[in-house]
Design a protein around this nucleic acid. Structure first.
Lengths: 233, 233
DNA sequence: AAGTGGTCTAGACCACGCG
DNA sequence: GCGTGGTCTAGACCACTTA
């Protein structure tokens, strides 16, 4: 029944992709329903369903009950970024990872931090500043706020050898988070830490994670010039 | 059989998520196999399979035949970015979209372009430079190379009113692409176009798309300071 | 060798949302 | 109303990988 011995739904998917790409089915076109395609491909409807659902997830198809399945008029490219631990990212490039703690304190945060994290303005938070290095060269500066009422164990962790970046991933589960990528000019202090000229263009990743309704941690990572975040679409 | 009338697999998924999050199942732990979970949840194995497969896709579970399913020791956060047409991005923010063509020519590209696009060095390519505006303010500078042997129709398109960004999405299908995000200093010429101080930190998106083995287009988008690319994890 | 997840099937019921 | 996709089931076979 299969022309290959396995992954029949991928065969279906590839054939559908081929038809879209060969412009047999044009953007906006209604394609045959699942039952008809199942007959055509000689497989069960659920196999067709899996193939089409997967393509709809990637944005190439628009599916609506009763209205049927259409080729997306303007496919939205979806790029999936893997946000790994910085140590792994560096080691994957074949470089030697280094870590330096710059500061660690328990203080009341600035208002824009307590505001974003929705904590009481006077509540003390754990503040950690650290540097990640690749082959002894500054790679990324990390500035982080940790909510101690959600992660009390963090108070007894010095972050001297193990980065907060890595410690939190193992000890502080989160349910969801917001992430933003941007470009910023290096302030003099950060420029010195990263050993780059003042006002260099740095790649910034801002991340705020939540454990249900409570904020876990807010981090800003500033990457030295030359950093690129890559992926495929 | 369902406690809600629909989406039973999501109930299973949420219960598994709850157990991971409540640390009933710790990172690295082996969880019960599909058949046992199906009995426990009173549903078919394929329902459990869908729930667990979906969690494995998001990086929270590691699944291997015979070895079973484990809670990921270090969940890799996967951020999905929707790379939309710039016009839509601006209009979604409630701003008025504007477009200005700066230059359009057919020339032999620099070597690093023909190299990346794997075209013959002397082969002429369509070169387009344009500006996207939000509420009359420069938003992003677009510099693009289009492979005319893959998209011949582009030669008869002036890109005076409709941006290449938008035109290509409708007229030039692609099978895959590479994308990179980085931070760059504005060169004087670009700074003037974007109306920002020289050496401003710009957010850059580099994209190279392919139609099977042939490169379709290579584009560099430079966003004015303040731009942020946001998503959820 | 044996247990696990990956896939497929044939059939079923139903939520949704066009018309 | 009714066609469509969304989901679920019970069962089956098999690829993979570890023990």
């Amino acid at each position: 029944m299969n022309t290959q011995t396995f992954r029949n739904w991928q065969r279906v998917q590839e054939e559908v992709l081929r038809r879209i790409h060969a412009r047999e089915w044009l953007p906006g076109d209604l394609i045959p329903n699942e039952a008809d395609l199942a007959i055509e491909f000689g497989c069960a409807r659920s196999t067709v369903n899996r193939a089409l659902r997967s393509l709809a997830d990637s944005g190439l198809l628009d599916r609506r009950r009763k209205a049927g399945t259409r080729v997306a008029a303007e496919p939205v490219a979806k790029a999936t970024l893997n946000i790994a631990v910085i140590r792994h990212e560096i080691e994957e490039h074949g470089a030697r990872y280094g870590y330096m703690l710059i500061a660690r304190s328990l203080v009341a945060p600035p208002l824009h931090i307590s505001g974003a994290m929705q904590t009481q303005p006077m509540q003390e938070m754990l503040h950690v500043r650290a540097l990640h290095l690749a082959d002894e060269t500054p790679y990324a500066f990390e500035e982080r706020w940790v909510n101690p009422s959600v992660v009390p164990d963090a108070l007894s962790e010095g972050f001297e050898k193990l980065s907060a970046n890595e410690w939190l991933l193992k000890h502080a589960p989160y349910t969801h988070g917001d992430i933003a990528f941007s470009s910023v000019q290096a302030e003099p202090e950060v420029a010195e830490i990263l050993d780059v000229p003042p006002h260099s263009a740095l790649f910034a990743i801002d991340r705020l994670t939540w454990d249900n309704q409570a904020s876990v941690t807010k981090v800003c990572l500033l990457f030295a010039p030359g950093y690129k975040l890559r992926t495929q679409i």
